[in-house]
Structure formats: C-alpha cells, structure tokens
Computed example of a mutant assay.
Amino acid sequence: MGIDALGLVEHVTIGGQKVTLAFPDLGSGGELTAALDGYGKPIPQQMATFSEGRWGYRSSSRLCYVSRASAVCLLQPQEKMSDAADFNALSEAFPRWFRILQEWAAVWSGEPLRDFDDAHSSAIHIPAGDQHMTGSGALMGTVFIGAQPLNRSQLAGALRRASCQEHLPVEHRMLLSAKSAELGGDLRRAVIDAGTAVEVALGAYITDHLSKKRLPADFITEAIKSANGMVALHGLCTNLGAELEVSKNRLRAELAEIRNPAAHTGKIPTAAEARRARTHAETLVRALRPIPQS
C-alpha cells in the first residue's frame, strides 16, 4: 500500500461483529511498527511481543508491505477461546470479508488476485492467557500491492465495501480471474473468463441504456438474448452510442474466435492469443463499466 495509508484507523464490520482496525506506522530502518489500537492505546504486551518484527516493511519511497494490523473487538471471555462461539463466528466470517477487500485492492492496484492457501498463518490471533496465543484456524492470503499502491482513500474504501459485503462487480471479478489464470498457465480458462467478462459488461451496458428509456424489462432481456454472443452485443452497444476502442472485427477475431473453441472443444490458446484476448476484455469492460477509484 502507499505510504500515506500507514496509520489508518477504520471501523469495520466482519460477520456482524464491530471491529476497529489500526494499521502500523513507519519505524526506523524501514520496518513497520505497531500503531496504537483504534482507541489510542498501546496494544497488549503479549500481542506486541508476538508480532514484533512481523508488521511489514517499506520497500520503496512510495510503497510498503503490511503483513498485519491490530484489531479491537468485543468477545465473550472464555477459558478456552478456541471454543468461544463469537470468536469462531468471527473467524469463519473473516475469509469472506477479506476476499472482498482483496478484490477491490487488486482492481485498483493492478496486481493479480491470489487465493487463500496453506502458506500463511491463521488470519486472527488473540491473547489466550498464560502467555499463550489462540489462532483462528482460518488460513489467510495476502493483498499484494505493487503495480500501483493503494492510497489511503482506496484502502478505506476497500475496507468499507468489505464490511458492507459489496463485492466487486461480476465483470471485473472475471477480469481478475482471467489474469490469475493466465499467470498460472491456465490459458483456456483465461480466455473463457475474459469472454464472460465482456459479455456481462456488454449486457449490463445495454440494460442500463434501455432502462433509462423506460423500456420493459422483458423486452430488454429478450433483446440481449436475441443478440446471441459478444460480437452481436458489441454491435448493439455501438448502435446505442457506445464508443468502443476494440472494433467488432477485432473482438471477433482475437477474442470470440479464441474463446469459443476453448469453451466448447477444449482447445488451448497460445500465450499470445490469451494475452490479446484478456487485454481486449480489460479495455472493453473498463470503458463500459467503470468503477469508482476509491
């Protein structure tokens, strides 16, 4: 994330639980240090010791890597916190909340979306008495932010949207999926997801445009069905006034005719074909369905 986002305090909701998050500050030597909690108090010594040297680091003049943040929430004390219902409910809700945060971070930063895996520790740690720690048991992924670091406003916006369960629009999620598939070598899925993203965006544009003309929903649905495919939907969009940088002929040759055999016969495209298809999809989706930048 960007340097300006350090020290951000944000009130969020995770699975109905009110949580105050505080992001670390910049210490000496480029390492990040624990911030005060969301109420201006030092975090418990047990947590400070456990997290020492693990908050993150500054990697350039404008970019830092944050590996954890402090959180304050109300949980019913239990002798064995791993058995506490509210702690387990928070742990179960966290991956869904964090996934939405990842989506918005990825689309704003230009970094690919990573899945949760077993390469990271538990998402949540809390003091459990006798100098022990209780982990959530929910393994967490990471928000990688490198191409364009999140600024303070974007980080706050991503946290707010995660708390409201406001997912990234489907067409933009499909773009992220296409990019991840391409980077992972699954070129067939990359072009299929890219094509789906385009069809969703074209259909949404048509729906919005005709709805403003107060045309019946059934008529709009039938018009989209009758268009039958992304090339025909592209033509309908341009007839409705959309100015698209990717021409219908290029869309047909470099996306539709690559995606269709991949989807229906299992044909694997070349790396160059997959890259062009995804690039065209990104251009169209971002033009047809722009998203807010914070």
Rank of each mutant, 00 (worst) to 15 (best):
S121F: 08
I124M: 08
P127G: 11
G129V: 03
H132Y: 10
M133C: 01
M133Y: 03
T134A: 15
A138G: 01
A138M: 13
L139D: 09
L139Y: 08
T142P: 00
V143W: 00
F144N: 12
F144Q: 11
G146K: 09
G146C: 02
A147D: 03
R152V: 02
Q154R: 11
A158N: 10
L159E: 02
R160Y: 06
R160V: 05
S163A: 15
Q165L: 13
L168W: 08
L168F: 12
P169A: 07
P169C: 07
V170W: 06
E171S: 15
L175Y: 04
G185T: 13
G185F: 11
L187C: 02
R188Q: 15
R188T: 12
R189S: 15
V191Q: 04
I192W: 05
I192N: 04
D193W: 04
T196E: 11
A197T: 06
V198F: 08
E199Y: 09
E199H: 10
A201K: 05
L202E: 13
I206W: 08
T207M: 08
T207W: 11
D208R: 15
D208G: 00
H209I: 07
S211N: 14
K212G: 15
K213D: 09
K213A: 15
K213C: 07
L215P: 01
D218N: 14
F219I: 11
E222C: 01
E222Q: 15
E222L: 13
K225G: 02
S226G: 03
S226H: 12
A227K: 09
H234N: 10
H234G: 01
G235L: 01
L236N: 02
C237N: 06
N239I: 03
A242M: 11
L244G: 05
L244T: 01
L244W: 01
S247M: 11
K248V: 11
R250Q: 13
L251T: 04
A253P: 00
I258P: 01
N260P: 00
A262Y: 02
